[in-house]
Simulated scan of single mutants.
Amino acid sequence: MVKLRDVCRHVRSKQAGPFWITFDIFFDGRENFERYSQSAALSSAQFARLYGTDPARVKHIPVADLEMVKISYPRATPQGGMVERDMHAGQQYVRLLDVILD
């Protein structure tokens, strides 16, 4: 069983304006990028389950030149709102580290 943390050199999450959160998943080489960048474990449906969002609004953008995938989804509430728990979305990536890739 391969976890995301095992095939990436860097995984981060951040705000992408007040209404979106984005993830940058940098694989540790071309082989792992090609093998896992389209994995069902990184699909829109999986992000919808993990982050409670609409899968139709999740954006999945592979960037082959950088051997990375950018995945973005809309925030449930705008940044800085009353229920905000992670203002800059810098901690959102943590639950991805143990995702098992297929």
Results as ranks from 00 to 15, higher is better:
S43E: 00
S43Q: 02
S44Y: 02
S44M: 04
S44A: 15
A45L: 10
Q46L: 04
Q46K: 14
Q46T: 12
Q46A: 08
Q46R: 15
F47R: 04
A48I: 09
A48D: 01
A48H: 01
R49W: 08
L50Y: 03
L50M: 06
L50T: 05
L50E: 02
Y51D: 07
G52L: 12
G52I: 12
G52D: 13
T53G: 09
D54V: 13
D54S: 12
D54T: 11
P55I: 05
P55E: 00
P55Y: 02
P55D: 01
A56D: 03
R57E: 08
R57T: 15
R57P: 05
V58Y: 06
K59Q: 15
I61S: 11
I61W: 13
I61L: 14
P62R: 08
P62S: 02
P62N: 04
A64R: 12
A64F: 11
A64W: 10
D65K: 11
L66S: 10
L66H: 08
L66M: 15
L66A: 14
E67K: 09
E67N: 15
M68I: 05
M68E: 09
V69L: 11
K70H: 11
I71Q: 00
I71A: 00
I71F: 01
S72W: 08
P74V: 06
R75F: 13
A76S: 15
A76R: 15
A76L: 12
A76Q: 14
